[in-house]
Design a protein around this nucleic acid. Structure first.
Length: 216
DNA sequence: CAGTCGATTCACT
DNA sequence: GTGAATCGACTGA
């Protein structure tokens, strides 16, 4: 049985840490793949400078404004997908980015999709890796994850991580004002948690007109 | 309508 | 540790 929808119909900062340890099931024509969630990030609606919803509703982020318990999938860096679970009341735009997990079922399928993974723990170690391992793409944007067991994507109760084993810190890859919020949550000591990387602007960062590094 | 750069990953030094 | 890959949404003119 999937998790009840009202689990997601709460503030995202409550939901995000409670997703750790849950089971995410991806059902494909080739069979099921299951992941135990070990790392997530919260994105808190239109008021959150780090969120895709910060500048209001667009075609791309529309599913974040939709009902809770559905997927928001976006395409990034020209080649990857990332998977979020929409939280809070319909009309608001909060979501939880699923950043990493341990593949606990369907490892053979996951490995076919992630041939570059050297070790099992790398199969879903990172948001785009997780999406790739589970064959998550645009076609799953807006999918209900609280529907029946046969649904393409589903979140099961799993084994929630007790609060004393949950750590939190700044969100990976989020710059500006959004970097201040410690809204990344992970399971302490879990080998599938992805390494933290600070946000790096692409071109201009720290350069003056002469092309030298700014500052001291 | 052209320019910019992203909630990243991988190969290479 | 650094930079390339690769595309499309968003921005500002």
């Amino acid at each position: 049985m999937p998790i009840a929808r009202d689990f997601f119909d709460r503030p995202v900062l409550e939901v995000a840490p409670e997703l750790l340890g849950r089971t995410l099931v991806r059902t494909t024509s080739d069979g099921p793949i299951e992941v135990r969630i070990t790392e997530v990030e919260a994105y808190a609606g239109e008021a959150d400078p780090g969120s895709h919803a910060y500048r209001g509703r667009t075609e791309r982020n529309a599913s974040m404004f939709g009902p809770p318990g559905h997927a928001y999938v976006y395409f990034i860096y020209g080649m990857w997908f990332s998977l979020n679970l929409v939280c809070g009341e319909e009309g608001t735009a909060s979501g939880v980015l699923l950043r990493a997990g341990e593949v606990i079922k369907g490892q053979a399928l996951a490995r076919e999709r992630r041939p570059k993974a050297r070790k099992d723990r790398e199969l879903a170690q990172g948001p785009a890796r997780l999406a790739t391992a589970l064959s998550v793409d645009r076609s799953l944007n807006g999918t209900d994850v609280c529907a029946g067991p046969g649904a393409p994507l589903s979140v099961l109760a799993g084994h929630p991580v007790s609060p004393d084993r949950i750590r939190n810190g700044p969100r990976t890859g989020v710059g500006g004002e959004g970097a201040a919020h410690p809204w990344r949550f992970w399971t302490d000591g879990d080998p599938t948690v992805s390494p933290y990387r600070a946000h790096v602007p692409r071109h201009r960062a720290g350069r003056d007109k002469a092309g030298r590094q700014a500052g001291a």
